[in-house]
Design a protein around this nucleic acid. Structure first.
Lengths: 202, 202
DNA sequence: TTAGAGTCCGACCGATCGGTCGCTATAGTC
DNA sequence: GACTATAGCGACCGATCGGTCGGACTCTAA
């Protein structure tokens, strides 16, 4: 029935698939993705859809990469050119809070980058779990770098343990996600900002 | 083949099913539970298994209740008779950290009480999501009660915002779960204790 | 202009999903 | 000792799962 599309249209199709996958996975989880439902919602056949990825696992990886890219674009990239150290760290933290509070269109079920960590943390090793762990480790290193710079520059107390600070910062955002998603708590973003201010020196 | 068992044996069977469900769900998620696999691992038929619960949803609820009970028994009950306020709060927090660090036998995939919150926070309302939210709200209220008592007794600074403190405490334990499950980070329990000490006044 | 590459579909596959039904055999009750 | 309630089984249900295959079709490169 509907024949081959141009390479550009094919790219757009792939794009649509990934976007819808991210949205679906943010609600149902990466394992909750199903080719059939996805194809149905996109008005295309299962085989046509799967042709773009080969296997469900590749589709999951594509959705995960996209989720990570969306996170990065919203939280990291706007701050990239700021001076490393406390200034950039503060900007990143503010963007992070705003992001978790507002990113409802691409992630109707909340940040997939965050939830995929919990979904796969218990599973045996595999491409998806490995990718989840790698992405989170990368993000953690990014935070750590600015923390260390800030400590070295005297912007944070010399006694600061960078890994401890990163650990606690991460917890604040996990708590934000928890409060927003499970309870719809609209005070959580402000609580997050207060907690961060205390951690980084208000 | 195998006929009816005594009421006592039936209760033990039900118990085995729930235990195995909790273990499986801690890895695969409550939605990842499947009657077929469960029955296979327990060496019984699907229909025999389902007879104890009626529907998969009831099985999920039973597993969730059990996970909550295990959590409560490990974290809350040992501290129950301590004096309300900071003393009991500290005991609870210590037990909580130990629990997330060690409870590997009943929860091979990490605390189900914790992960079910992330799994269901994005899903539409329903008995399971409602139960998850209710259990977490109850736990939060329990923490809040001791925090308020501690503030009233002057054991915590008068300026303390109890909900803010509960929010941050929760984040510390979410971060602990994250670090232990995703990275196998063995330093996380100590980081947790340090963070809690700072929050509650070391 | 023609050959190849590649997109998408429809039909189909075996496996598994949650769940139902009729049955057997025993435990508990009178 | 007869009756009943019920634990558990095996066969089966329609739906859906991830995935394969061959063909129809068109874009693109030669």
């Amino acid at each position: 029935m509907s024949p081959r599309k141009s390479a550009a249209e094919a790219r757009r199709t792939r794009e649509r698939i990934i976007e819808r996958s991210v949205a679906m996975a943010s609600v149902e989880g990466l394992e909750g993705l199903t080719i059939g439902r996805l194809a149905g919602e996109l008005g295309m056949s299962k085989s046509g859809l799967l042709g773009h990825f080969g296997t469900k696992e590749e589709l999951q990886l594509a959705a995960l990469r996209r989720a990570s890219a969306v996170f990065s674009r919203a939280v990291w990239e706007p701050a990239r050119d700021l001076p490393p150290g406390l200034v950039r760290l503060r900007a990143v933290c503010e963007a992070w809070a705003t992001y978790l509070d507002r990113e409802r269109d691409t992630f109707p079920g909340g940040c997939l980058f965050t939830t995929s960590a919990v979904e796969f943390d218990a599973r045996g090793p595999g491409p998806v779990r490995d990718a989840v762990a790698r992405l989170h480790r990368t993000w953690q290193h990014r935070l750590l770098a600015d923390i260390r710079t800030a400590v070295a520059a005297g912007e944070l107390p010399a006694a600061t343990d960078p890994e401890q600070l990163a650990f606690e910062l991460n917890g604040v955002y996990l708590s934000l996600n928890h409060a927003v998603q499970l309870f719809g708590d609209r005070t959580a973003p402000d609580r997050t900002r207060r907690a961060v201010a205390r951690l980084l020196g208000g």
